[in-house]
Design a protein around this nucleic acid. Structure first.
Lengths: 163, 163
DNA sequence: TCCTAATCCGACCTCAGTGGTAGGCTTTAC
DNA sequence: GTAAAGCCTACCACTGAGGTCGGATTAGGA
């Protein structure tokens, strides 16, 4: 798997917050119930999103979380990066403090040959990040609101790897 | 990390085989020495590539591996898929026996709302696969052959056979 | 006919990270 | 004051990654 449940749960949390107007804070407990997620685990995930500045919290009774930024302005690369820590296709892609990846594989300083796999992983990484950047939270929220009409329709859920 | 060392080592192996003309089989031992990889582990990785039909083996003394397909015809999606087993961004993307991925997340049968995260992970998966499909082994081999010019010896890279 | 070099194969091992849980503390509305 | 919420730290089981080991099999050469 590429991403862990942190990304999955975190994005679901964002979607849930996005589906609320943002008028009142939404408690993690309610999100955990709706999404059927472990509350204690979700708390830690929320902390990651808060640290990134994507959500804001209100403590105390009737507290909870709201989006700190408009859903249109939240691109998923930022969210997933906050949740997963780094988006590196390979071990030797060490992320820098600046946010961009720096290659540090064993073949880099061995000047016998160029590390050709680097070319491949760099392309893959770019493909992932572009896919994430193109998707906003607003888009996912809109998508989530579509479905309830059709329940029994067999959608084409098959993803051709080779196609 | 997205990919494991299986993909890294396997692609390096393919590159090494691609850099040889394919006239004589290349032993894993020589590849392991040149790339500084554990031989026993590399054997299991080679088995994956052979099973996929990307490389062919010759047993016995002076045996080894050669590319079973031209380097131009090997796209990296096929190689990485053989090495990693499946390219699924998330746990709920269960790979089928047919080789394509089928979505089976917990939100599928819960008809309350559409699983919006599916949209995101599908895009990511597509981004990865496209990046892999665009890259051929021949391209990586050419890239690997570029660097030695900077050093003193512009010789083609040798695998320790005969020196 | 050995010896050696190579692929092949299955069992085993160790370690880090994932995916949690438990328990308590702090803040705030009613 | 109490309940509901966020916050925080420690712990813990399980899985998979990343090997290792020992052997079996095949083939070339002296």
């Amino acid at each position: 798997m590429i991403f862990t449940t942190k990304a999955e749960y975190g994005v679901r949390l964002l979607i849930q917050l996005g589906m609320q107007g943002g008028s009142r804070p939404v408690s993690l407990k309610s999100v955990a119930e709706v999404e059927n997620l472990p509350l204690a685990y979700l708390e830690r995930i929320a902390a990651l999103l808060k640290k990134e500045g994507l959500i804001a919290s209100t403590r105390g009774a009737h507290g909870g979380y709201v989006l700190a930024v408009g859903a249109e302005d939240i691109t998923m690369d930022r969210a997933v990066l906050a949740l997963e820590g780094a988006i590196a296709p390979m071990e030797c892609f060490i992320d820098d403090a600046a946010g961009d990846a720096r290659v540090a594989c064993s073949h880099h300083d061995a000047d016998r040959q160029h590390c050709a796999t680097k070319l491949l992983w760099t392309r893959v990484q770019l493909g992932i990040i572009k896919s994430l950047q193109r998707t906003t939270l607003a888009e996912l929220v809109a998508f989530a609101g579509l479905q309830p009409a059709l329940t029994s329709a067999p959608l084409p859920y098959r993803l051709g790897i080779n196609g």
